[in-house]
């Protein structure tokens, strides 16, 4: 066989972001509508009484280990979905300048908010409660 120069292939790191995008998209598709319905419409409009969403109740939930994990996932994971889409949509609408920076800003934003929420929950979980108990 003649020795042809084989093309060099460069592996993309997209699977990491695509995985998070998919997980976030799944969560967003199944749960975001009902979450918006509850926190944005039913509670503020008083259709569900506000005592079901009281400070004691939510704080109590968010300061259990499982509750804090659930809150973290519900709040932070959608960012990895939406910022991935925004990053690609920027390309779609023809904003091609500084794609590297766009990537850093988009996923950096998702990362920063995730860390922010994680830190808050950790702090609530470990700090002695100021109210109640």
């Amino acid at each position: 066989m003649s020795k042809t120069t084989e093309k060099t292939y460069k592996r993309s790191h997209e699977p990491v972001f695509w995985g998070l995008f998919g997980a976030g998209g799944m969560l967003t598709a199944f749960l975001t509508p009902v979450m918006i319905l509850i926190t944005g419409l039913l509670i503020p409009l008083g259709i569900i009484d506000q005592h079901y969403f009281s400070y004691e109740k939510i704080h109590g939930f968010a300061t259990t280990w499982y509750g804090s994990v659930i809150v973290l996932v519900l709040v932070a994971l959608p960012f990895w979905h939406t910022l991935h889409r925004i990053f690609h949509a920027l390309h779609d609408i023809g904003i091609n300048r500084g794609r590297d920076w766009q990537q850093v800003i988009c996923y950096g934003f998702a990362f920063a908010v995730s860390v922010f929420v994680f830190t808050l929950l950790l702090q609530m979980l470990t700090a002695p409660s100021l109210f109640g108990f």
Partner: peptide, 10 residues
């Protein structure tokens, strides 16, 4: 808008 909602939650 979903980003905005998640920010409101955060």
């Amino acid at each position: 808008l979903i980003t905005l909602y998640s920010l409101i939650l955060a």
